[in-house]
Design a protein around this nucleic acid. Structure first.
Lengths: 216, 216
DNA sequence: CGCTAATCTAGAACAAGTTTCAGACTTGAT
DNA sequence: ATCAAGTCTGAAACTTGTTCTAGATTAGCG
């Protein structure tokens, strides 16, 4: 079959997602990229990390294996990108219904538990994304860093801070560490959901130790 | 060559390491096990996770590939076992020179930083062990749990507690989460050594929030 | 010692991530 | 419309973790 028909028009999409337009994608390339991410998330939702097989992703997204690798240089890159994608969803969802707690600690804990419940709905997808994230080596640092920054923003949003102090930023770092690691222990069946909740609540108390709430 | 000579004597070794004697190993089996773990650590020290290739481990330890898999059912199992091994070293080293800080929080932070410096001496080995630990799926849960328990003991030792309160145990859990996750960010080049130090010190303050020091 | 079950070995075979390549298709500029 | 450069495709090849097999060796026991 011909790889693609001649017909092709419409303006560029300029995706809302902050993709550093290092090489602006054509519309069809953007479409391919989306198809790939969609296939990745779909396969991951079924069987987790192992079920995301590059040949299958390629087939599901109607793209040659070589093309898949051109878009995402490794399975880990692909899954981390999938996570970026999901995080954006999550963030915009959270923005619509901000947490209601009285203290920053409560709001952060509530936000993380809400995110956690979302992950519980697709545990296999969570497995694939989190495993990829923690298994990533240096070659994926920029992408993993991006995920980390996005997570930081979500937590700071929950705290309601615009000018966090260095101490508060340290607390946020530790909260993120705990969040990731607690997720891993849950995913690998070594901690219950209740235990994860306790861990999150415990670490959020750190916030109370930092400078008083400062809304800019 | 004959697989092994007839000569074989001496008593059972009953390894000091708490191996659940589900199937007591003969002396030569114990020796094979040690050779394998040694080869694993050696290869890991060179090139990290990727350098630990099962065929190479088998060759280095003079064991057939199938035998290697009989002893350790996967590369992850092998590396987690390698970590157990190293942790025991670490623990006995730490026992000899307990930390000197005045507060529990200080002692824990000092202990973890000491462990961290030990890891820095063999960053590739650290990479292999930590990546295996966080990548492990459910089939490795018992072994990973064992590592986790061992880490808990080390931290409780540093705190000087024999009867920790539930709150203190929660704090210890969060400290472990932070420790693992901070290690990962350091190994993947996304955080500096200084940053890891700050994170550890930050989380150790959680201890101060728990019940007053209780020496049993 | 002689037997049987378990273990070990060498090596082939299989699975999935990754790389490579020749040729077809698109794109952008002229 | 046409050409050069870049992209995509299909398929094969390569790598490394894992499994399997047949035969040799060893361990435990009578």
């Amino acid at each position: 079959m011909p790889a693609e028909t001649k017909v092709d028009k419409v303006a560029k999409v300029e995706a809302s997602t902050a993709r550093p337009a290092s090489a602006p994608l054509t519309e069809r390339q953007e479409a391919r990229r989306r198809r790939i991410l969609h296939a990745s998330a779909q396969l991951a939702s079924r069987g987790g990390f192992d079920a995301v097989q590059m040949r299958e992703v390629a087939e599901s997204s109607q793209v040659a294996l070589g093309t898949l690798y051109r878009y995402f240089p490794s399975k880990i890159h692909l899954l981390v990108a999938t996570m970026q994608d999901q995080l954006e969803h999550m963030h915009s969802t959270l923005r619509k219904k901000p947490p209601q707690g009285d203290t920053a600690a409560e709001r952060v804990a509530e936000t993380l538990m809400r995110a956690f419940r979302a992950l519980q709905r697709e545990p296999h997808l969570a497995d694939a994304m989190v495993r990829a994230l923690t298994f990533a080596d240096r070659s994926v640092s920029p992408e993993v860093d991006q995920v980390s920054r996005q997570t930081t923003v979500i937590i700071l949003d929950a705290m309601g801070l615009e000018n966090p102090t260095p101490e508060q930023l340290s607390a946020v770092r530790v909260i993120e560490h705990t969040w990731h690691s607690a997720l891993i222990t849950w995913l690998s069946g070594r901690a219950s959901i209740a235990q994860v909740k306790i861990d999150i609540e415990t670490v959020c108390r750190l916030i109370a130790l930092t400078a008083p709430e400062d809304r800019g």
